[in-house]
């Protein structure tokens, strides 16, 4: 059987977040194309609900990518984003799901290397943990 493709969803702000993605592409960086990006106006708009919904709909891992906390286009949006991610992590731990399936990242538009790094971190997590399903099924 062919290796299952990891499913990673990224909520990415349309300011520094998306610029960082674009710069990586323009600079010819290689990264796994299987991830699905969702553009959001600001990571402050991402709610725990959205993150959990992505997992519920089949994502193995979810990340949120926003501006640097001290240089957020909307001032404190990416701080809000981090708090939501942390809250979801605590909920996941309470129901016995690995909290590392969800992460918050921050980047500036000039960090070309950052996006490929995020992708590789999250696809590694997704590969390592696999889909959310009973352990026995993966033997």
């Amino acid at each position: 059987m062919a290796e299952r493709e990891p499913k990673v969803v990224g909520y990415c702000c349309e300011k520094h977040g998306i610029e960082c993605v674009n710069l990586a592409a323009r600079s010819g960086k290689q990264y796994d194309a299987s991830i699905r990006l969702v553009r959001v106006p600001c990571t402050g708009r991402v709610d725990g609900m959205h993150i959990l919904r992505a997992l519920e709909d089949g994502a193995d891992a979810v990340f949120v990518l926003g501006c640097l906390e001290k240089n957020c286009y909307y001032d404190t949006g990416s701080i809000e984003g981090r708090k939501r991610v942390d809250y979801v992590k605590s909920m996941l731990s309470q129901v016995g799901i690995e909290p590392e399936r969800v992460e918050m990242f921050n980047a500036s538009s000039s960090m070309a290397w950052k996006f490929p790094e995020i992708v590789s971190t999250m696809t590694d997590v997704a590969k390592r943990l696999g889909p959310i399903e009973p352990r026995g099924d993966r033997q």
């Binding site: 609900m49 309470q94 399903e133």
Partner: peptide, 13 residues
């Protein structure tokens, strides 16, 4: 919504 998602994920797992 978040509670239902979390409970569903737990059940799936």
């Amino acid at each position: 919504k978040m509670l239902i998602s979390a409970l569903k994920l737990k059940n799936r797992k």
